[in-house]
Nucleic acid binder design. Structure first.
Lengths: 224, 224
DNA sequence: CAACATAATTTTGTATACAAGATGCAATGG
DNA sequence: CCATTGCATCTTGTATACAAAATTATGTTG
């Protein structure tokens, strides 16, 4: 044995998951509009495979909540109504609060340092008013907190919800006041994390998510 | 229009979901032992269908976490390691806490009355030391709280996790002391619900789940 | 006899074919 | 001209056939 101690069978890429990845990208990039029907044969032709793996890929995305499948009527890109958004955010809040609580207990000093570095980069994007880059780092921070919580189940469920709301959040432009508030909340988060205060971090994250919902709702009602 | 105001297309049963239901029952009843491999063709023969719907059913159960699918190696009844259990319970705790918080705010008086009725029946089973019936009502109470929270997303995620741990909980016989403690927690829950104290109910539910994990862990370490 | 390499068999993955339900169009009648 | 009904077409659901990978069995060699 030449020093290999791998246990995981390296999770080879199978066709359906590869297809699901591609489709996810298409949906999140907006190439497939919410509500748009998805034709299995068309997809199969596009990727030069048969309908079988396409169907499996669609099922995967359905499990993630990115598409909705109606029997005998096929798949369509899921679109979250305001009511559904109002459902999803509190659940994300509960999960991220738990993530924060666990991360504050379990994160290594290196992980905290890495999150702080991300935080600083995000601040720079805030100052530059670069919303896209800001969002990108923002997500990385939330992902880093989840990773530091060391709970795979938690990560999976949180990511699933994040996937569902990502679309809605893309378009929801924040007001400047709200943006400032969000940055303030992130400052508090970092402080609580560095001080390793689980309860505080949990509370801040929950509030943060509540405010995010309010922001998205404002944007929705404004944009109609 | 003769007074019909149905919107939902009545969600017809399709073959894969029907199969998944059957399989779920088999797994939870213990007819399929954890870790046991599942042969697609054998299942197809057993239910007199082709492998195609069987495969879809297995994917559904995999999404629920009841079976695990390894590429090119097929499906097996999932078995939760102690580490995985230790992951799942805190997540359930966070979700049930949220459910309690929302239920305390939103439950109708009728719903609370119904939960109280369930609670009384559960007490009777406790007095009679009828663990199976106790468990059954217990689950109904948790389901009723989730229903009263009026958050479909929350219910889905909570149910998914509940499915994963159900197997483990079946065999985990409680100590008498722990059983008494659990009943006490349920008394507190009911009180908080009737008094409509969201924060209190959330806290109790979280503690309740933490204790459940401890119970299951004890049972696991004892049983080896 | 043990360990490895190799071949046979089984099992899963993908493609294709066929069946059943849903959608859309056109013809018919009011 | 509009509504309704029946038919044609398209789409999804299921079955079967074939390909690729994994498992098991077998034989060979040290």
């Amino acid at each position: 044995m030449s020093g290999t101690q791998e246990i995981e069978p390296l999770a080879r890429q199978t066709l359906p998951t590869a297809l699901a990845d591609r489709l996810r990208t298409l949906v999140l990039a907006g190439d497939l509009a919410p509500g748009a029907r998805i034709n299995e044969q068309a997809l199969a032709d596009r990727f030069a495979v048969s309908r079988t793996p396409v169907r499996e890929a669609l099922k995967l995305l359905a499990a993630e909540g990115l598409v909705s499948i109606t029997p005998h009527r096929g798949a369509a890109v899921a679109m979250l109504s305001e009511e559904e958004l109002a459902e999803v955010f509190p659940v994300m809040g509960a999960l991220e609060a738990l993530a924060g609580e666990l991360a504050a207990k379990r994160a290594t000093d290196d992980e905290i340092a890495a999150i702080e570095a991300l935080h600083q980069r995000m601040l720079a994007h805030y100052v530059a008013r670069d919303l896209t880059s800001y969002f990108a780092i923002n997500q990385q921070i939330h992902a880093a907190i989840l990773a530091a919580a060391r709970n795979e189940t938690l990560t999976q469920h949180a990511n699933q919800l994040a996937g569902r709301v990502r679309l809605a959040r893309y378009r929801a432009n924040m007001s400047d006041a709200r943006w400032q508030e969000a940055v303030g909340e992130h400052e508090e988060m970092l402080a609580a994390l560095k001080a390793r205060k689980p309860a505080a971090l949990a509370r801040i994250l929950k509030t943060h998510l509540d405010n995010k919902l309010a922001t998205v709702r404002e944007a929705l009602t404004a944009g109609r």
